[in-house]
Simulated scan of single mutants.
Amino acid sequence: MTLNCALTFDFDAMSVWLGSYKSRNPSMISRGEFGAIAVPRILSLLKKHRIKATFCIPGHTALAYPDIVKKIDAEGHEIAHHGWVHENPADFDEAGERFNIEKGLECLKKAAGVTPKGYRSPSWDFSDRTIKILLDYGFVYDSSLMGADFTPYYARIDDGFDSVSPYRFGPNVDLVELPVTWLLDDFPHFEFVDKDTYGLSASSKVEEIWTDEFTYARKNVKGGLFSLTMHPQVIGRGHRLMMLERLINKFKRARDVKFTTMLAYAQGWRKANPLDKWKASGAPQAQSACGRDRL
């Protein structure tokens, strides 16, 4: 079986500094502007290698750079929802969280005429309502959780947890989870934010880590998904783009590897693994009520 490889780019632009970091410092916010410089470089690289990628875009970015978002769509790449202004969903009540989802959808529709079927939460943060809200808005997949590495699973709702009781698993629902990890994200490796993130690693270090993770997945998780999370304002620096192209060439040399968008993979996996059949398969993330009762 083939290992699927997804290159994903979180085009945050200024929103990450305004939303996640809550900065009002013009210098820090200007760091996001480099994303608009980097996206054309990334699109050129993808076109050269005939690869379709997934771009996760906040609504705020879509309004700031509609022409770039249109170009991403016009070149055949998937656009996924990435919040309104890179906010933490847990910072809002239900009405506020729904507003942010709707605002993001509205802005992406306005900028490029697209209605995303995939979601990635800003900074991979969730509230206890997020999955239910995604179902209400018809999303096919989420890519924010970390319950696996290269194997998708169906997300759950209504898990119960505290510091004194056994963990209580809720029911799986029809939302494909394409798991992520900070290990395969460029931001902690490369970015520098005082009192927060001290990256600035050599690209050779990151190339070694990502290559070995890819090799492990290829040898041990056939049919799985190896996905990289990258940010144009981070990966778009010259020496890092050179690293990315070296990785692409390595991945392409493996004949049992196929590049894919997140949506295409999620749709194929969902079709091959209907929810009821998957729950009966005994996957670690499928926790039946009767199984919990036996504990």
Rank of each mutant, 00 (worst) to 15 (best):
T2N: 15
L3K: 06
A6Y: 01
D10I: 10
D12I: 12
M14A: 12
M14E: 15
S15E: 10
W17I: 07
L18C: 02
L18E: 06
L18R: 07
L18V: 05
Y21Q: 13
Y21P: 08
Y21L: 15
K22F: 11
N25P: 12
N25M: 11
P26L: 11
S27G: 09
S27H: 14
M28W: 15
I29G: 04
G35W: 02
A36I: 04
V39M: 05
I42M: 02
L45K: 06
L46C: 10
H49P: 13
K52Q: 15
K52G: 14
P58W: 02
H60I: 06
L63Y: 10
A64S: 12
V85I: 11
H86V: 09
E87V: 09
A90W: 13
D91E: 10
F92G: 08
D93T: 07
E94Y: 01
G96R: 00
E97W: 07
R98W: 02
R98T: 04
F99L: 11
N100H: 15
N100R: 13
K103A: 14
C107W: 07
K110L: 13
K110R: 15
A111S: 01
A112W: 00
A112R: 00
Y119R: 00
S123H: 12
W124C: 11
D125I: 14
D125Q: 12
S127D: 09
R129N: 14
R129W: 13
T130F: 06
I131W: 01
K132C: 08
I133T: 06
I133Y: 02
L135I: 02
L135Q: 03
G138E: 01
V140P: 14
L145H: 09
P152W: 05
A155I: 08
G160A: 05
V164Q: 13
F169D: 12
G170W: 04
P171A: 00
P171K: 01
E177Q: 06
L178Q: 03
P179S: 04
V180Q: 01
V180H: 00
T181C: 00
T181A: 03
W182K: 02
L184R: 00
D186M: 01
P188S: 04
H189E: 02
F190V: 05
F190Q: 06
E191Q: 09
F192I: 06
D194M: 15
Y198A: 09
L200N: 15
A202V: 07
A202D: 14
E208P: 07
A217P: 11
K219V: 11
K219E: 15
N220V: 10
N220R: 08
F226Q: 10
T229N: 00
M230R: 07
G236V: 02
L241G: 10
L241R: 01
M243S: 05
L244W: 00
L244V: 09
R246I: 06
K252E: 14
R253P: 10
A254M: 14
R255P: 14
T261M: 01
A264L: 02
G268R: 15
W269S: 05
W269N: 03
W269T: 05
R270W: 04
A272T: 10
A280Y: 03
A283N: 07
Q285R: 09
A286T: 04
Q287D: 10
S288Y: 00
S288L: 06
A289N: 04
A289H: 06
L295H: 10
